[in-house]
Amino acid sequence: MSAQQANVPYYFVPGPSKWPVLAGVALLVTMLGAAGWVNSIALAPELCVIGILGLLVVLYKWFGDAIHESESGMYNARIDTSFRWSMSWFIFSEVMFFAAFFGALFYARSISMPWLADLDHKILWPDFAAHWGNAGPAGTIETFRTMGPFPIPTINTALLLTSGVTLTISHHALRAGHRGKTALWLAATVLLGATFMCFQAAEYMEAYQEYNLRLTSGIYGSTFFLLTGFHGFHVTIGAIMLSVVLYRVLKGHFTPDNHFAFEGAAWYWHFVDVVWLGLYVVVYWL
C-alpha cells in the first residue's frame, strides 16, 4: 500500500490493460514449448524459454504499474482489503496444492503398499516388501538409498525457522518506523532463503550421485522430488517477492501503517516455513 495513500471515497478501478492478454499469450507459448520439449520436437526448448522470458517481462511491467498506482495515491482502504482477501485466497490455493501431494504420499505409504503386500498379491509379486523406499513390485527400479534428516534437511530447517524470525523482526521495525533496521533484517531473510536453496541443490546432487535417487526411482523418488522440488520453487518465489519488497524499502516506499506488499510477502514466506516443517517430519523422519 502506498506511502501516499489517499483518503478517497471511491474504489479504484484501473483502465483497460494489455497485460492480462500478453500474460495469456506468454503462458500459451510456454506450455506449447514445454509440451514439444518432452516430445523431443525441434526448437521446442527455445520456444519454452521464450515464453518464460516473455511472462517475466509481462509480470515485471504489470506489477510495476500496480506499484506506480499505489505510490501515486490511487489506492485506499477498500483496495487494501481487496488485496488482503486476494492474498488469503491465493495462499489457500497453495495449501490445497501441497495437500494433494501430501495426500499422494499418504495414499502410497498407508494404502497402496499394504495392499500390494497382502496375500492375494503375493502370487504376482512374492518378493515385494511393504517398506517405504522399496524398488517396486517386480524390482524393476534401480537400487537407491532413501534420504534421511541429517545433515542438510536439518540445517535447512534451522535456516527457514531463523528466516521467519528475521522477517518478523523486520516487520516490527517497519511498523516502528525504523527503515534501516527493516532493510537489514529483510536482507538477512533473503540471504537465508538463498542459502536454503544452495543447500537443497547440494542435497539433490548428493541424491543423484551418492544415493542413486532420481525422479524415476519409483513412488518414493516421485513423491520426494515433487514435494521438495515444488517447495524449493516456492522458496525461490518467496525470496524474489521479499527482494522486491527490500528494493522498495530502500526506495522509500511504505509507511508504518500502509505496507501491505510487505505483509503479503511475509504471509507467503511464513506459509512456506510451515510447509517445510511438514515436509521435514513426513518426508525425512517417518
Rank of each mutant, 00 (worst) to 15 (best):
residue 59 L to T: 03
residue 94 E to N: 11
residue 42 A to H: 07
residue 109 R to H: 04
residue 102 F to D: 09
residue 113 M to L: 11
residue 84 R to D: 01
residue 64 G to D: 08
residue 127 D to G: 09
residue 40 S to P: 01
residue 105 L to I: 02
residue 43 L to R: 01
residue 54 G to R: 04
residue 41 I to K: 07
residue 91 I to L: 14
residue 46 E to S: 08
residue 101 F to I: 10
residue 72 S to T: 15
residue 53 L to V: 13
residue 103 G to N: 04
residue 119 L to Q: 12
residue 87 M to S: 11
residue 107 Y to D: 06
residue 72 S to M: 10
residue 79 I to W: 00
residue 118 D to C: 03
residue 54 G to A: 12
residue 65 D to E: 13
residue 54 G to F: 02
residue 38 V to H: 08
residue 125 W to E: 08
residue 121 H to W: 14
residue 106 F to V: 13
residue 117 A to F: 00
residue 91 I to F: 09
residue 58 V to H: 00
residue 67 I to P: 00
residue 72 S to V: 04
residue 110 S to M: 14
residue 120 D to F: 01
residue 107 Y to S: 05
residue 30 T to M: 15
residue 72 S to F: 03
residue 85 W to F: 14
residue 111 I to C: 04
residue 88 S to M: 12
residue 103 G to K: 01
residue 83 F to Q: 02
residue 50 I to L: 15
residue 77 A to G: 05
residue 110 S to T: 07
residue 77 A to F: 06
residue 72 S to W: 03
residue 78 R to P: 04
residue 49 V to Q: 06
residue 126 P to Y: 11
residue 64 G to E: 12
residue 112 S to M: 08
residue 89 W to T: 13
residue 92 F to V: 09
residue 93 S to N: 12
residue 89 W to S: 08
residue 125 W to K: 01
residue 50 I to R: 12
residue 79 I to A: 04
residue 92 F to Q: 06
residue 126 P to L: 09
residue 55 L to M: 13
residue 29 V to R: 08
residue 57 V to Q: 08
residue 36 G to S: 09
residue 110 S to P: 01
residue 31 M to L: 15
residue 108 A to H: 05
residue 89 W to N: 05
residue 64 G to V: 04
residue 67 I to Q: 07
residue 46 E to M: 14
residue 85 W to Y: 13
residue 89 W to K: 13
residue 43 L to Q: 05
residue 50 I to C: 07
residue 79 I to V: 09
residue 81 T to W: 06
residue 52 I to E: 03
residue 77 A to Q: 12
residue 76 N to K: 03
residue 58 V to G: 02
residue 95 V to A: 13
residue 39 N to M: 13
residue 54 G to S: 13
residue 60 Y to P: 00
residue 80 D to T: 07
residue 44 A to V: 05
residue 59 L to G: 00
residue 117 A to S: 14
residue 102 F to M: 10
residue 123 I to L: 14
residue 84 R to T: 09
residue 43 L to Y: 11
residue 49 V to T: 13
residue 83 F to A: 10
residue 80 D to H: 11
residue 31 M to W: 09
residue 79 I to Y: 02
residue 45 P to S: 11
residue 45 P to F: 07
residue 47 L to A: 10
